[in-house]
Computed example of a mutant assay.
Amino acid sequence: MSPRHPSLPPALRLRARGALANETGRFESERREAFHDGWDLPEEERLLRTEVRTERPRSALTWNRSPDLPFDRSINPYRGCEHGCIYCFARPTHAYLNLSPGLDFETRLIARPGIAAVLERELRSRSYRVAPVALGTNTDPYQPIESTHRLMREILEVLRDFRHPTAITTKGTLIERDLDLLAPMAADGLLRVGISVTTLDPDLSRRLEPRAPPPARRLQTIRRLTGAGIPVRAMIAPVIPGLTDPELDRIVEAVAEAGAVAASWIMLRLPLEVAPLVRAWAEDHYPGRADKMMGRIREVHGGRDYDPSWGKRMRGEGIWSDLLARRFRLATARHGLDRAQPPLRCDLFRPPPRPGDQLTLL
């Protein structure tokens, strides 16, 4: 066990958290550290708990032009994520809120109530042109606080009413709550779901993703969704070289048996503050493998912890990346997961009538 990071107060107790530090965000002018004040008085131990604040959203749709992504718009009902996945590429976004990408990202969350009403307004705009919208691309929309805030449920009701093509990515089992909305959308060709499976090892999953459902429970979610007629793509993401890559073939087999109709993979990405967080995590949990893991990561990213270049950031490059891609192609072909999914339908999009709207003649 590595020594406690100076950003953490001595009496602060962590339970089921991914990050081991709470470094000041990169935009802050001052760096904060906990230190002993010289008083020989015992401090009362305090458990770090999750806090949720609210934000009034001015917009619901986020637009992107990334050539690496198959969508140009997304919706994020929450900022930060309680799942606490140490590898989460979204951690650096918390610095924009003057919060730490470390423990703040998984304990100081922001919910955006009213986002469904804002979304409805944007979809009714005369300038809006329909195309699939993605949910879960930054932080998980079905993280634990969704059970009380229900923002994802409200968003889905708007998308259903507008008959809008929708793609959801999650590792949360709360998605099963919304089967009554999701199944009819899937039946009309309006919905696809991606379930993230990083490892089949429950102990490794608990360390990597401390508050996310364990692997067996995610496989059960795939079964329940596919049983309701919802096409599920298993997302083997991220693949962590030197740690989870030996499981690639077994994960493909497991998700195929659970009913997934397609699969994809993404190489581990370590942008900005994520790299030191993952390095400290590896040295703490797997000290015998940490150097090999970080060395392999640098090999696939051109000698750096991360290469953000288009076309490289999702897959990496070099012999190890090529080997993983080849193994993935063979495994998905063997289990029938290499077929392309049909595009989501955009021709059904219709703004629903509002009370007082004039009826059309045709």
Rank of each mutant, 00 (worst) to 15 (best):
G259P: 06
A290G: 06
G302N: 11
G259N: 02
V300W: 07
A216G: 02
I222A: 03
H301T: 07
H301F: 15
K292P: 00
E209W: 00
Y306N: 12
P210Q: 13
P184R: 06
P287N: 10
R224C: 03
I251M: 06
G288V: 04
D188T: 09
A216K: 08
W265Q: 00
R217V: 10
L190E: 10
D188L: 15
R207F: 06
T221C: 08
L191M: 12
V255N: 09
V252C: 05
P215K: 10
W265C: 05
W281S: 06
P276T: 12
L204G: 01
P202G: 01
G303P: 12
S309H: 03
T221W: 01
L204T: 07
A212D: 03
R233E: 14
R218P: 05
L268P: 04
W310Q: 07
G194E: 00
G189K: 05
P308S: 10
D307K: 08
V232D: 06
A183L: 10
A228H: 06
D201A: 01
E299M: 10
R218I: 04
V193W: 03
D188P: 02
S264Y: 04
A212E: 06
A212P: 07
W310H: 15
R207I: 01
G242Q: 11
E273Q: 11
A254I: 00
R289L: 15
V239I: 13
V274M: 07
P271N: 09
D245I: 14
P215W: 03
I266Q: 10
K312E: 07
P276G: 13
P308E: 02
P287Y: 05
E209R: 05
R298D: 11
V252H: 10
W265G: 06
T198D: 01
P213D: 11
P308K: 09
L248K: 08
A183N: 11
S196D: 03
I222G: 02
L272E: 15
P276H: 01
P287F: 09
I230A: 07
M294W: 15
G189W: 08
A187I: 07
R304P: 06
P246A: 12
E273I: 05
G229Q: 08
G227T: 10
A187S: 13
V239L: 05
A234E: 12
R218K: 13
G229V: 05
P308C: 08
D305T: 14
D245H: 11
L225V: 10
V239P: 00
A254Y: 02
R206P: 00
A280D: 15
G194Y: 05
A256W: 09
V239Y: 01
V300G: 11
A237F: 00
H285I: 06
P210E: 06
G259K: 11
D188Y: 00
Y306V: 14
V232H: 07
L270H: 08
I251H: 04
A260C: 02
S309Q: 13
R206V: 02
G302P: 02
